[in-house]
Design a protein around this nucleic acid. Structure first.
Lengths: 355, 355
DNA sequence: ACGCACACGTTGTACGTATAACTTCCGGGG
DNA sequence: CCCCGGAAGTTATACGTACAACGTGTGCGT
């Protein structure tokens, strides 16, 4: 079988094989397939080369290319969790832009959203040209920088990165607050993220300020892990310790009970719905609940969540574009992109209970 | 700046830099750091080399290594969805084994669980040594094979792959069926997956057979997309069209209403819970519901789901091990690994209603 | 005293690509 | 008629690594 002539070269065809088939040199093949043959190779010849490459099923050896050029045309996307479809959206957006520029995108799910493993390349060991990191803790950010790679931060403080893409989350929180104020709510509680990254700090400030300016007050803040159970626990604390739940035993401690719960993401909000139900409170008749992100669960729960839609795919796309810009050595000033957010009023918010 | 002596070599240190620092040749560096220096290099020298490498922060150039060896020490994991934490578990298990063998693992989320993009390498463009694919449609499997890469299938038909890892899902379905039969249920409905892959076919057969053998009957099968809304729709059809829901308008069409809904995964089951609630049925008093997978939502919904725990991380780990075995050229027979599953009885199943 | 084996390395090369530098051909202006 | 310049390619080389094939020196047997 293997002895039948060696016109069939060992394994995968290389640029030399294509060159031989097209009757040119390997250098010409590289020029043509690399796209920079204008004025250097006759159109007819170029077509021959492309034809031969197609016929042989030629695929450039990425390792060789990468070795020669020093760049891998691959980026790393660091996300805190795979299971949150918000980050799935970020990935989708980023991979679309990447593909359009013939870039690869490798996904690294940083466990717990905190620190990537000692070496992010241990699992995503492909050679990388840059990193896009989402919602990271500060120390792990430093580790990434230590790699010397260009870094784009998503939804985070921009100061330590080469570029940043953020949501206008302050505006979003203002929209949420005004929505609730418009429904008559005056006593509002904040179910916040337990981790203390930039985006959550901004949310808290914008919420507090807008509520105060609108004549309401932020009666309580409880922090919880960004999950349904985290929301359940935090919201339970809010509702029982403020006396919002009628039969919770504990008396209110000076503060009147909130009529609305603003949650830092949809998972927390879903947990808050569970907490309310367990405590015998109806949503939205007794208490209103809002989320952020507009992930799938926002519409899966009952009642469906009023939430902020954050353009996740837009953020991924913008992040990838920003990274490409940095890699192209752009010195332009738009190092920070801000994306608008939209309030989606649904069934989990309603008029504040009278009294 | 740049003129200050060239004792500082351009960019990242290479094996030659390490060699110079350690007073040996680059070949020796390669031998030592490659681990195969036993009897070829003096222990003292080896230690010197390692020391120099550490001091310089040497990192082998993966592109060069890959070019030289022809292997990338990187595998691709294809999963249908990022948002399902079952697959997150698979990834976790696989990456653990990969890291232990100094392998990289690149994640490719195949949109919709059906076909990976025309070229899986377009997004995960790292050079690959093999592929681990989970729950794929048949035609896309053929595309993967066309790449000529070793392929390990997870939870799928083993015939077309170099190795396979499966759950003992037939046994699992028997456990579910016996659990329900033991609670007195005799009329059972199956909320099945809309996609028709191997694992779901097996589930359906095992369920039907065990129910029949236990003196019950499978009164209905409805298919739905593997999501909460898919489950909501399919379960609604089951409950209304069989007359299980009292005020659903449509009369039963010859079949008595089911008292239990066996769902092909936890998302479907969560949707079924919603459907039951909307139709005024209590779970488990009026109807019992079971899921499969034991993902986070199984405990997030009310009541918590009785479900089958499938060892997702175990599957990922076994898959990676199998791939490594294939790459090492093992001819051994254990091309198929079968993992046991466990029934977790929780609050969504109870005694069948009398009458 | 001679060589021979063994321990300890080194030299050389190839992997496939991109690109700088060089060649060759040809037509036209001086 | 000669030379010059552009078009159309080609030749040569380097990227950093792994490994096969070669040196060296030292101790030991005979």
């Amino acid at each position: 079988m293997a002895k039948s002539g060696r016109d069939e070269p060992e394994g995968r065809p290389t640029g030399h094989d294509v060159a031989r088939a097209a009757g040119v040199s390997q250098a010409t093949v590289s020029l043509v397939l690399g796209g920079k043959w204008q004025g250097r190779v006759a159109p007819r010849t170029a077509e021959n080369v492309r034809e031969a490459a197609r016929a042989l099923g030629y695929r450039p050896n990425l390792a060789a290319r990468s070795l020669r050029t020093g760049r891998a045309r691959t980026a790393l996307l660091v996300v805190p969790a795979l299971t949150n479809d918000f980050f799935a959206g970020v990935y989708t957006g980023a991979v679309e832009v990447a593909s359009a520029h013939d870039f690869g995108l490798v996904l690294y799910p940083s466990p717990e959203g905190t620190a990537p493993a000692r070496d992010p390349f241990a699992s995503a060991r492909a050679a990388l040209d840059g990193v896009i990191a989402s919602s990271m803790a500060v120390e792990s950010l430093a580790e990434l920088r230590a790699g010397g790679l260009p870094l784009v931060m998503l939804d985070s403080d921009a100061s330590d990165a080469d570029a940043a893409v953020n949501f206008d989350v302050a505006d979003g929180m203002r929209q949420v607050a005004r929505h609730l104020l418009g429904l008559g709510h005056r006593r509002i509680a904040h179910v916040a993220s337990a981790v203390d990254s930039w985006t959550f700090t901004v949310r808290a400030h914008a919420l507090a300020r807008t509520v105060r300016e609108g004549g309401g007050s932020l009666v309580r803040t409880e922090r919880g892990e960004l999950s349904v159970t985290g929301g359940l626990e935090a919201a339970t604390r809010v509702l029982t310790e403020t006396g919002a739940a009628p039969d919770a035993g504990r008396p209110p401690r000076g503060t009147a009970p909130p009529t609305a719960l603003v949650c830092d993401d949809d998972l927390l909000a879903a947990g808050a719905l569970k907490a309310a139900r367990r405590l015998g409170l109806r949503v939205p008749e007794d208490v209103s609940v809002t989320g952020i992100d507009d992930v799938a669960v926002a519409r899966a729960v009952e009642p469906e969540l009023t939430t902020l839609r954050l353009p996740a795919t837009g953020m991924g796309a913008a992040g990838m574009r920003a990274l490409l810009g940095v890699l192209d050595g752009e010195k332009e000033g738009d190092r920070e992109t801000v994306l608008p957010v939209t309030l989606l009023p649904r069934a989990s918010t309603g008029p504040a209970p009278t009294g």
